[in-house]
């Protein structure tokens, strides 16, 4: 089944929309856009839509990845455009591409992320943390208050040459930007 990977940012007030609500938001946007989304089989069919990694409530994301399984191939650019039209402000669709067949699910690939943390005005740090509780641990260790501005700049995956941005294709030379 073709999988559409959607690169998006979620900033401003949209950072206060939680993970499950974001899923509903995407599903309804897909419905309005009329994308040929795939439904799961069984008693209670649901759309096959997911995210690479949930964002904690209150944290903005600059390069988040959604993965939509489709019934049939569609032109990624058109899909991105029609989806973008259905999004609320501050949820910005930046790009879309089809996943390569050999590519694992983005949720399985994402393992770390680069964050920008600003505990106080003018005091800004960039850190790379693992997705398994890394941010929480960091905030606790450095006693950073809960309402601190935190931005997830980039989701990362592991390759032989180290951590690389999740959305980019690394095998083959077919990536266009």
């Amino acid at each position: 089944m073709p999988r559409l990977l959607v690169l998006f940012s979620k900033t401003d007030v949209m950072k206060f929309i939680g993970h499950l609500d974001l899923l509903t938001l995407f599903q309804r946007a897909i419905n309005r856009a009329g994308l040929p989304v795939r439904y799961s089989q069984g008693f209670n069919p649901h759309q096959k839509v997911g995210f690479a990694a949930p964002l904690p409530l209150g944290v903005e994301g600059l390069n988040e990845v959604a993965e939509i399984t489709l019934e049939k191939y569609c032109e990624p650019y058109d899909a991105a455009l029609s989806l973008a039209k259905q999004m609320p402000r501050h949820l910005f669709i930046k790009d879309a591409r089809m996943a390569e067949e050999y590519e694992k699910k983005s949720a399985a690939l994402a393992c770390a992320a680069k964050y920008k943390i600003r505990p106080r005005e003018g005091e800004e740090t960039e850190v790379t943390l693992n997705l398994a509780g890394g941010l929480k641990q960091y905030m606790k260790e450095f006693k950073i208050p809960d309402y601190t501005y935190v931005s997830r700049i980039e989701l990362l995956r592991k390759t032989e040459s180290g951590l690389v941005p999740l959305y980019q294709i690394y095998k083959g030379n077919n990536h266009e930007s």
Binding site: V13, I17, R28, L57, G58, P88, D146, Y147
Partner: peptide, 21 residues
């Protein structure tokens, strides 16, 4: 709009942000 420090401190900030479809 309500400042971030307000929204970050409440249980369900999504109630106060508007911006819906």
């Amino acid at each position: 709009a309500y400042p971030d420090y307000c929204l970050a401190a409440v249980e369900k900030p999504g109630r106060y942000i508007g911006n819906e479809i």
